[in-house]
Design a protein around this nucleic acid. Structure first.
Lengths: 133, 133
DNA sequence: CAGCATCCGACACGATACTG
DNA sequence: CAGTATCGTGTCGGATGCTG
């Protein structure tokens, strides 16, 4: 199956160095951060306005939304379109690059969806064991 | 292609709620955090000792390594095997669940490997635009 | 509506020192 | 070797208030 291949590929990619001083690490940290993943996920469904995103993501502050959106735009993953109306309408959407990221990213999110119960169960078992000790 | 399907699937999964109060978010935050991704990646290559991981990940402190390893073990992604020798030998490896995560995760890492140049270029362009004003 | 500026608390993280 | 304990700092991130 494809999954085994992917692991093998990554293994080949990763076994030869320590990742240290890799210029991609900050970008990856930002892109896989708490809010960025959710923002990108929300934008998969199509373009959103600022307030729409604020509602869709749920629990995010305006500051963090604005901040993440700016970082995402800087990396070329999200496009910011301003309509010169009054009041101003700002629309965010995924760029082509952003769409290409959506595949792997939703693959990861999907995994959490499928295995969430196992993760929760493992944690409970781990905690009860510690309590027993 | 499969990527388009995946996006569509995630879209269906995600469009109906705001992700708020999802019990998986803390786990996903932890698992996709700065160090956890690198630790899991390192373990794809096979079991590692503590010191080996410390060298492989590169830049991580003992504290963070220990802390992340504990969290990963709590979630059932990593197994911790202690050999009762002297000095003690502790070996970490991916569990079955951890291996199943490796697929989606390396898919994401692979994407960054393939598109790293584009991300860096986009940032430079963005920054130079800002400088121009 | 779509942000930015500011203040402030919480915790992530690293450096160091200590243990079995 | 494989950690734990403690301390100090930096950044994350929320609440509030203001602008255009």
């Amino acid at each position: 199956m494809a999954e085994t291949e992917q692991v093998a590929t990554a293994s080949r990619l990763l076994t030869h160095d320590t990742f240290d001083k890799c210029p991609l690490r900050p970008i990856m940290d930002q892109t896989t951060s708490r809010w960025a993943t959710l923002i990108i996920s929300a934008l998969i469904g199509g373009p959103h306005r600022f307030a729409q995103l604020h509602a869709r993501v749920g629990g995010i502050s305006q500051k963090m939304l604005s901040q993440n959106l700016k970082a995402l735009a800087r990396s070329g993953l999200v496009a910011r379109d301003v309509a010169p109306t009054n009041p101003p309408q700002v629309t965010y959407s995924l760029t082509e690059l952003g769409v290409s990221l959506a595949g792997p990213l939703t693959g990861l999110i999907g995994w959490f969806g499928r295995h969430g119960d196992e993760l929760l169960a493992a944690q409970q078992q781990y905690d009860s064991q510690s309590a027993d000790g």
